[in-house]
Design a protein around this nucleic acid. Structure first.
Lengths: 218, 218
DNA sequence: CGATCAATTGACTTAGCTCAAAGCATGTGG
DNA sequence: CCACATGCTTTGAGCTAAGTCAATTGATCG
């Protein structure tokens, strides 16, 4: 089974800032083997972005979320709300055509079922996150973001923790519906309260994740 | 196939304001046959809500979205982020245990596959909506909401349209991450600009959906 | 025809955005 | 190995959209 799946998967390595080539207008499933990536939505369809210097600028970036090794991402390229995947660091991917994947998986209902369950769970998580975006303050969003990163990047859910954030403040802000400046100010506040410390731009340490959770709660 | 599915589905009718009884802590799929319902998330786990007068008040309501005939809703009851379904009007449902449903559907990979595709699409829609909630103004959200309702309640995507909103301003606000007052003010503004007219609390008319779309865009 | 609850309107407050100017990292060339 | 340049981050000042509190109007039902 795994052999058959691997046979139709295409291994790709992306350098930081590079977008996964969009192939045809087909629905794809991407398994992230290593690295880190952000999932974007195309707001403006007319963004050629021909040059190699895709400095991630542009009129309206919209980061939907971040993905790390082990994640499976569904990439739908349906005109307006189409999504794309951009590497944050050196990233290894395994790309499947959704159709081919399902054809192969069809022989094994258990696989199909587990993918379905996984995607329903993902839906639930996204819903919960959506609801929160509508009702939380900047502080709660940033605290929640840090907790989530601690969990996903080094598996920590309690006590202290240290990790490298692969994305910049701008991407964090976009994913939380905040501006760069607001994210930075929240970082500063948390730093002054001893809930966070940083060195360089991307190394962060959380001395007390449980205390942070109090800040993230409603 | 359809017979087998119907055999394990339980038909339930809910009166306005009534929550679908939560059964056990299992994952359920609900098909909406008629009426209208809102999908909520439980924020505070310790809400007994024993009395019959569940007047939908409480500390923090969180409306995730609205559902209408034809929709299939995945209800996951996993402690914190568990969801529940509350009828807005007299509503007929068909409730499935997710496990039983999948057991039966397993015989027919095509069904499983189509449910998977549907849920991936739903995920995509939710993601897009989430992203928008983070970046849109109150006016854009309300305009977008009205357009979405026109489409879902009477299939209109152009020209003019009239329909009954089954939910109150509070539910609308919650689902958009706005307050009752802000929703009301946006309604007033749109009314004064001739983009909307209302009679009573719940009958709305959209004279020009296309003009509304301009207001909803980024 | 009132009672009750939802919707509207108003006055005020504030969280977060915008615009603008420094301060630092990181990487490159001498 | 150090100086410089670029771009990310931080900080500041002012503004605005939306929230809060409070009162009024309007709708719906007994």
């Amino acid at each position: 089974m795994a052999d058959k799946l691997c046979a139709i998967g295409q291994a790709i390595t992306l350098s930081p800032g590079v977008e996964l080539p969009s192939g045809e207008n087909e629905h794809r499933l991407v398994y992230i083997a290593s690295g880190a990536a952000k999932l974007l939505v195309q707001e403006s369809p007319g963004t050629p972005r021909a040059g190699p210097a895709a400095t991630s600028s542009g009129p309206a970036r919209h980061v939907m979320g971040f993905h790390f090794p082990g994640d499976i991402v569904s990439l739908q390229r349906r005109g307006e709300g189409g999504s794309s995947l951009v590497a944050l660091s050196e990233t290894d991917l395994l790309v499947f055509s959704a159709d081919e994947f399902l054809d192969v998986a069809q022989d094994d209902p258990a696989v199909l079922r587990s993918v379905l369950i996984k995607s329903l769970e993902s839906l639930q998580r996204t819903r919960t996150r959506m609801m929160r975006l509508g009702h939380q303050t900047a502080r709660q969003r940033v605290a929640g973001f840090l907790i989530s990163m601690a969990k996903r990047l080094c598996g920590c859910t309690h006590g202290e923790c240290e990790f490298v954030l692969p994305m910049g403040r701008g991407d964090i802000g976009d994913s939380l519906g905040l501006t760069i400046e607001t994210v930075s100010r929240q970082f500063t506040d948390l730093r002054e309260e001893g809930l966070l410390s940083t060195s360089g731009r991307s190394l962060v340490a959380l001395p007390d994740i449980d205390a942070l959770k109090n800040e993230a709660g409603a």
